[in-house]
């Protein structure tokens, strides 16, 4: 088997990684030992299946790798899919892991006096500029987005902006920073994503992979 024939599966680093690995194990794919070695600099890993390799990349990059066909399938949050809207991505399955919400939050003091109906323009700190702009545009509000890569909750307190759009799991980080949720943009969970060309040109192999994930998810729901 040549490298070109291998299925490359992309896993997101961070909070979903452990659940993703567990799910892969149920599908019957176990990564090599180096995958679990914290000191390893390796980025690509073999598995117990000769036809599948794993890569571990940032959660935003999973969507990009798969959309370009650099990886054939992977696990990506629905937040990332909404942000990029890649036409070359299929998201055939909700894996039910990495569940959280994408919300608009602001300081309590702002919420007390604010009337969202009167907005024509908002300034928002977020990792999701496209999604945020689209969300506010649908309500006739122009959103000026400040792209940050983390620690969004700091921005309002330090006067960078008054609002943020960010993922919330329990809401404790928001509360600790004096912020309150004002609206939910989307319920988020991790999806199995598949490259469109890969599914069209290798329907049997990729289809079998999707089917085995489907069985695992159905098994957990039952």
């Amino acid at each position: 088997m040549t490298t070109g024939d291998k299925i490359i599966f992309a896993l997101p680093k961070g909070r979903v990684l452990d659940d993703g690995v567990a799910m892969l194990a149920q599908v019957g794919i176990a990564p090599e030992a180096a995958f679990f070695d914290k000191d390893s600099r390796q980025l690509r890993f073999t598995t117990n299946r000769a036809d599948v390799d794993l890569i571990r990349v940032r959660s935003f990059d999973v969507a990009t790798f798969v959309a370009f066909g650099a990886a054939h399938a992977g696990i990506a949050g629905s937040d990332v899919l909404l942000e990029f809207e890649y036409a070359e991505l299929y998201a055939p399955l909700d894996l039910g892991i990495g569940v959280c919400r994408l919300v608009v939050a602001e300081p309590e003091s702002v919420k007390a006096t604010d009337d969202p109906l009167r907005w024509s323009h908002v300034r928002v700190a977020t990792k999701y500029p496209n999604l945020t702009r689209r969300h506010f545009a649908a309500r006739g509000v122009q959103a000026e987005c400040i792209k940050l890569h983390g620690a969004m909750e700091l921005a309002p307190a330090l006067g960078l902006c008054r609002r943020i759009v960010d993922l919330v799991e329990t809401g404790s980080t928001l509360r600790a920073n004096g912020l309150v949720e004002v609206e939910t943009i989307a319920e988020v969970s991790s999806r199995l994503v598949v490259n469109r060309v890969a599914l069209k040109t290798r329907p049997v192999e990729i289809g079998a992979l999707v089917d085995s994930f489907t069985e695992v998810v159905r098994g957990q729901a039952a």
Partner: peptide
């Protein structure tokens, strides 16, 4: 839209 994304959920 859901069909185009093959988004079963």
């Amino acid at each position: 839209d859901a069909l185009d994304r093959k988004d079963a959920a």
